[in-house]
Design a protein around this nucleic acid. Sequence first.
DNA 1: GCGACAG
DNA 2: ATCTTGTCGC
Length: 228
Amino acid sequence: MTPQEMEQEQIRLAPQVIVPDAGQGYFAQEDDVVFALDIHYAENTAHVGLHAQTFHGNTLGRFVARFETEVEYLPGFFAFREAPPLLQMIEQVWATGLTPQLLLVDGHGVAHPRRFGVACLVGLKTGLPTIGCAKETLLRYQGDLPDARGSTLPVLLDGDGVGTVLRTQTGIRPVFVSVGHLISLQESERVILELSGKYRVCDPLRHADQLARAHARHEKIPDATVFS
DNA sequence: GCGACAG
DNA sequence: ATCTTGTCGC
């Protein structure tokens, strides 16, 4: 797939993404199941980690798997490299009998030049509420973010608030939250902040990152289900 | 025209 | 993402 073809696909799919207004869409309940996913790469192998927990913090399962990729990383087209292995991983865990109400993806949702980051593609393909949470931004934003945990600034695109700069820990660099699908930006912020314990990255995504990294390094992972 | 650019 | 040493802090 050429960059031009990928761009056309983004333009075709972006209008299908549902971004509820404040007070609308999905709201996380204490016992809802959350899947957080991340990938580490080694050559053409994508090592995926999936951490499953209830919203209030009970771990339900830890999973790792490897998938082959040919797709190169291109800024702005991350979804086409990352989403296929993520979707396969979700299917495998789903087949286990564990089903999520919410997905957390490492990367952007609509805070993207064409409003179609990896969290949008994963959300559309699964039909599940999905939040994108990234450690760097693709879009410029203005203003000074206050130092305190919970502080926010809007990320704008063409005058629309497409994402939020969120300080999850006092004095620590912020993260960038945006809607992937079916959940409002306000609820996305609330969820990410509530799931953030003592680190910059929220606990579920941090656990998924550790799972993926350990699997990429061929380490033994206690209590993890290994698909491949 | 040039640089910047999620993971 | 990955390539990499020491170092500061809980």
